[in-house]
Design a protein around this nucleic acid. Structure first.
Lengths: 161, 161
DNA sequence: GCAGAATGCTTTAGGCCTCATCTATTTAGG
DNA sequence: CCTAAATAGATGAGGCCTAAAGCATTCTGC
């Protein structure tokens, strides 16, 4: 699929461009998976938790008044049914609580006191892991990469109907 | 009235005082997920398949002589148990076949004729989706991003023990 | 008002993925 | 040789995730 293509005419040059897009995507995916595995494995070994649970709590930590299930679902970019399951778990463990909303269809979710404490500890460690993992990049590379990913995000979001 | 879609995903909600490294990571993750969802949904709707199955077949397509299970596992960056399950599925559907290896512990896996045909069709469509999705980036951005991701990959791989 | 559409959430079936554990085979050290 | 360690793969429990279907509530247009 990714073999080198001789570039001697317009058509094969176009194919080379195509391959570039594909290779860019594969490389992006690899980077993302590398970091994700790193974080998952540490969350698991040090805090006996998972990335989705951490992400969910991170959202709640930024919104002390709580969030509705569909807001969580949108922010985490996962389906509602999935959020239900993770919230169920965190409720059982006393880290999160459900409460009634003015809209009686909706449910409001927020961190408990225990959840706040637990999250704070994890968040500090998490940030440290990322800082260490990315320490090999120069400040310049950081900034450039950040900007280019902003462009990519913009472009990819436009491609979503 | 068409309102702009509110963007409440993980990254844009990051607080201003979050550190650079963390924001870089969250943005990378967002980009990766955006593209991944795009591809998954199209693989599903047009070819009734999934990204992991596609990825596995892509590896086999590059190695007509076949790959051993542990090679597949390494290349796909997933655990062996996982590969077993996906290969089982593809074998049932006649897209892939297992054969004996000189090392009698090992199993060699390769595409069947049917699998080659099916993959070829999907690969063309897949490449087209990616090219279209990334079409908004300039050639320059493509190249820069590709290089920076190479650096990131290098750095993140070194951080793995 | 009120019927039908839209929305918020849950449930279910099924695929992906990991870790831990198991069996079979190969390799290495004595 | 021959046993212990390493390696290849399979299996099972459990969590994440999706799409689809279902129930309750709210909104909308007549």
């Amino acid at each position: 699929m990714l073999q080198a293509v001789p570039r001697h005419d317009r058509e094969s040059a176009a194919r080379a461009d195509d391959h570039r897009a594909l290779r860019l995507w594969l490389r992006l995916l690899t980077c993302s998976q590398l970091i994700e595995r790193h974080v998952r494995s540490r969350l698991r070994s040090r805090f006996a938790t998972t990335l989705p649970r951490f992400d969910l709590m991170a959202q709640l930590e930024r919104h002390p008044a709580g969030l509705k299930m569909n807001e969580l679902s949108r922010r985490l970019m996962v389906t509602g049914g999935n959020v239900t399951g993770i919230v169920d778990q965190l409720v059982r463990e006393g880290l999160v609580e459900r409460s009634a909303d003015a809209d009686r269809r909706a449910v409001r979710v927020r961190l408990t006191r225990l959840g706040e404490r637990a999250f704070g500890e994890m968040a500090r460690a998490h940030e440290q892991w990322i800082v260490e993992l990315l320490a090999g990049l120069t400040r310049r590379e950081h900034v450039d990469l950040f900007k280019l990913l902003a462009r990519l995000k913009q472009v990819a979001q436009r491609g979503e109907s």
